[in-house]
Design a protein around this nucleic acid. Structure first.
Length: 568
RNA sequence: CGGGCUGUGGCGCAGCUUGGUUAGCGCGUCGGUCUGGGGGACCGAAGGUCGGAGGUUCAAAUCCUCUCAGCCCGACCA
């Protein structure tokens, strides 16, 4: 490719509304442009990177025996009704009607479609299978952000494993785990596998692959001394036990005028770790209480996972007053109606002589023995881990880091196969439901994750594996015959050797050409100009280090071919 | 959906508080001359319904109302 004919609209300044590094650099470098919030155009440069990422994913999927499909993106309502997710997905799913009024949805993921295809697998002899596709996914995200990191339409590689039993699923899961590490290795992404929640997809043994980045949207609990890693929506920590004093025979109500917060109550003499924080939530329409220790934070995802709820939100002030009789600040779970379910965090288990709201404005209870005074429906893990708490494996102080979810694998079990009726006969002639796993990687998001972690103040620094071009030949003087003869000759030689090379033949000043090649992050640059050619030399620059060295013109091609090939 | 903010040539911004003739500046773009190894200089040029609609006024980028879009922070996900 000759730069003079290649469409690369680079910008000197990034748009003011782009904040994430990858967003700014991908826009500035002419890789992407926004068409609409959450919808990006891939320009030629961006699409080259995107497709290189996609090809790496393909190669690693094929390496574990994956077979590539291509499913439709538009699905009939009935398919999603069969699994119950037509309702579950709520506003997240784009829906429309065709001209005859038939309701259809744009697929957010393809469990149903693949499970339906599995109807045609009839014998145990056909199993196991690993099926995958690279397909556009549509999600009506409430809030697209950070360029390619969170968008409403994106290419995802989604894979599904089909097995006869759990042992088969475990093996498929492990294969994917290994394949994902191979993929991230080739993308030069330091992706850590972490325990996670499987969310709306359903399933178990959920593992997310997380890339540490300030532009990430997840918080990961990480132990600096052992291998414990978990998403905060799943992570646990060890906390010191609290010794309680013997409580009175019955809780005592006492006036607390004007006291509305844990902190205020603490000043009034009740340490936060001796308080019960009562959160009023509405889960699938039912008012529910979530209890955590006063100094602890409720994690909503944990509450959702442990209650099995789908739609979950804090109660409105009106709902709170209606069901508990008091306003936030004086709420508690002592003596509430049996109708209201109470989920209590395990850190509260066995605690006594606690202080909590009395469901009467300006009054609290003290001397509360949870086992005696509160009708806990279920003890569950609701507490969000905070930095510095002890690792449950080794006791070291945990850290919490921001991270991008680059991939996610989890075991679906028989849920979708059951819903679609995907069965096989085993070797004994018994009907068995196919056991499935689901494995996703967002291509554009990974491209952004690489950008997010591979840049300097000059611009991007693509790994050779996904660089839009592997080599940039910068011709210093386009009207100098010797320069152009040498540059073009090298260009043709590299092309013939299968190197992705771009020849910067623009009639522009040196500074412009250098700056552009650094901005778009081509790993190797060869500077060809009259100055060096005078004694048969060109300059070789490595983008990552900016190390520059003189190389003989007749040796440069071989050197580059060797370097690029080794780095691919 | 709740909270905060922003819409003025391709990009970055000023002008708006206190309405007033041809709406400015930098970068970029086009033509030209000189240049030519780190975003060069000079001359000339193109390019704007001031997000949209309505209103107030002799007069609106500027004031008022509504609306649309985008960004950031929270609840969701590859």
């Amino acid at each position: 490719m000759r730069w003079s004919q290649f469409f690369v609209p680079t910008l000197r300044d990034a748009p003011a509304d782009a904040e994430a590094v990858s967003h700014r650099l991908l826009i500035r470098g002419g890789f992407i442009r926004q068409l609409h919030s959450g919808h990006y155009t891939m320009l030629p440069l961006g699409w080259r990177v995107h497709e290189k990422v996609a090809d790496i994913v393909r190669e690693e999927m094929n390496a574990i025996g994956g077979q590539e499909f291509h499913f439709p993106a538009m699905h009939p309502k009935s398919l999603w009704e069969a699994s119950g997710r037509w309702t579950v997905m709520g506003d997240e799913m784009f829906r429309l009607q065709d001209r005859s009024g038939t309701e259809v949805g744009l697929a957010m993921t393809h469990e149903e479609a693949f499970a339906q295809m599995a109807l045609e697998v009839n014998s145990w002899r056909a199993l196991p299978q690993i099926w995958y596709q690279l397909q556009w996914k549509f999600r009506d995200e409430p809030r697209p952000k950070a360029g390619l990191l969170r968008v409403r339409e994106f290419v995802m590689k989604d894979a599904y494993s089909l097995d006869i039993d759990e042992a088969g699923l475990d093996a498929a899961f492990d294969k994917h785990h290994a394949a994902y590490l191979a993929i991230f290795g080739r993308l030069d992404l330091d992706a850590m596998p972490v325990e996670a929640s499987s969310g709306a997809m359903g399933g178990s043994d959920s593992i997310e692959f997380m890339v540490e980045s300030p532009s990430g949207e997840d918080d990961v609990v990480r132990c600096p001394n052992c291998d414990y890693r978990a998403n905060v929506e799943r992570g646990a920590s060890a906390i010191p036990a609290v010794t309680d004093e013997t409580p009175p025979a019955a809780p005592e109500k006492f006036p607390t005028p004007g006291i509305r917060t844990i902190a205020a109550l603490e000043e009034a003499g009740a340490p936060a770790d001796r308080q019960i924080k009562t959160m009023v939530m509405v889960i699938d329409g039912a008012v529910t209480l979530a209890l955590v220790r006063g100094d602890h934070q409720l994690n909503m995802q944990k509450l959702q996972d442990s209650t099995g709820g789908i739609d979950i939100r804090p109660a409105t002030p009106a709902e709170t007053v209606e069901h508990l009789g008091a306003n936030p600040g004086s709420l508690g779970a002592v003596g509430v109606s049996d109708e209201i379910r109470i989920f209590a965090d395990t850190a509260l288990e066995g605690r006594t002589n606690m202080t909590t709201g009395a469901n009467e404005d300006d009054f609290h209870w003290r001397g509360v023995d949870i086992a005696r005074d509160i009708g806990v429906t279920e003890w569950v893990d609701l507490r969000e881990v905070t930095a510095g708490e002890a690792c449950i494996q080794c006791g070291s102080a945990l850290e919490i880091v921001r991270a991008i979810e680059a991939g996610h694998i989890f075991k679906l079990g028989t849920q979708y196969a059951e819903a679609m009726g995907a069965h096989v006969l085993d070797s004994d002639g018994e009907k068995r439901t196919i056991v499935m796993g689901s494995y996703g990687i967002g291509i554009g998001r990974n491209m952004a994750a690489v950008a997010e972690t591979h840049h300097d103040d000059k611009g991007l620094i693509w790994p050779v594996s996904v660089a839009p071009f592997e080599v940039c030949i910068t011709a210093m003087k386009v009207d100098d015959e010797a320069t152009m003869t040498a540059a073009t000759g090298l260009y043709e030689e590299l092309r013939a050797a299968g190197i992705d090379v771009i020849l910067d033949d623009r009639d522009a000043r040196a500074g412009v050409k250098f700056a552009d090649s650094e901005l778009i992050g081509i790993p190797y640059r060869v500077t060809v100009g009259p100055r060096g050619l005078a004694d048969g030399r060109v300059e070789h620059t490595v983008r990552a280090t900016m190390e520059t060295s003189d190389v003989a013109l007749d040796a440069i091609a071989a050197q580059l071919i060797a370097e690029v090939t080794a780095a691919r």
